[in-house]
Design a protein around this nucleic acid. Sequence first.
DNA 1: GGTTGCATGTAAAACGTTACATGATTTT
DNA 2: AAAATCATGTAACGTTTTACATGCAACC
Lengths: 180, 180
Amino acid sequence: MELTKTAYVILGMLRLGKRTGYEIKSLVDVSTRFFWAASYGQIYPELRRLAVAGLIEGEPRPQGGRKRVVYSLTPAGRRELRTWLDADPQVFELRDEGLLKLFFADAVGGASAPETLAAKRRHHEQVVERLREVERSGAPEGYADLVLHYGIEFNQWIADWCERTRLALEEDGARDRKVA
Amino acid sequence: MELTKTAYVILGMLRLGKRTGYEIKSLVDVSTRFFWAASYGQIYPELRRLAVAGLIEGEPRPQGGRKRVVYSLTPAGRRELRTWLDADPQVFELRDEGLLKLFFADAVGGASAPETLAAKRRHHEQVVERLREVERSGAPEGYADLVLHYGIEFNQWIADWCERTRLALEEDGARDRKVA
DNA sequence: GGTTGCATGTAAAACGTTACATGATTTT
DNA sequence: AAAATCATGTAACGTTTTACATGCAACC
């Protein structure tokens, strides 16, 4: 792989038409952000690099006195996107502080596990709600819709696991207290 | 938060006794790696910083001519770990290239969605198998066990979603071909 | 005698976020 | 007139990975 993953996010976001860097960022923020984020600090320099590499083309389209550049895929960029799409996905990374806290919850002098589970559950239920709002606010077509549903079901599954596990822990605790 | 998350991984790994940097890395690699990784490049410098800050203590324990330092929590370090455990988790980050490819799968000239789903499924099923091996190779106690089961169920859920969705796509495709 | 495992460490590069700076246009 | 949005960009900072370097000990 020669291009960064951010490059593919940009190529992908240009697949359906011309976009400015600002529009790309806005699209990312309402769609891929939940599984692949990108900041201005990545997007603007990457747009330059992709243009130099001939994978995208930028044309100045100022609106009034406001400078503005819209980018579009070149045939080479479209091929590059296609090649990437046809290869097996490589990256799946997770950073889950809640799970880390649960893992260490046997550390002396505390009973943090149920509260950690409750907090994690709250977090994922909030994500579910935000995604449901995205869902309501205009149905995205095709695969975006599929991915949105994945996000909802995925976060709901995690929230449910947390609740299920928290209840199991509390039952264990109750049994222990009864036995003791 | 003043400490890095890596610092808490180290404090947590020291909660049950003395460990060398090498042992901490080995523990991470068979346990938290799936939701929180750490490299030597993070661990060794962080051990220094934590020792300077008085949260851990290192004592030289060479074995033969091989230099070796075992670290343990100080009371301050134990307090710091406890405080962190009692606070709500902040970080939940995901980078899922397969989902990104699925999201863009409507790009011209390809039918990559089912193959992307199949590849993602294979990946998560491989993770499930690795985790089941960890499970067999000695039952971890307490919350580590809980987290291990989370990992298995979580990856299995994703694998199942992929298969379910892939089949739905193929049915749609079959119907389209019949109608057309 | 060679390979694997134990053990420590660093340097460079890559990656990513945050904060800042600037200024026009549109909406309230 | 103010606030929000559109639009571009950079600098500093922090994090993380990768690759390298070193050497002893244990096992085969």
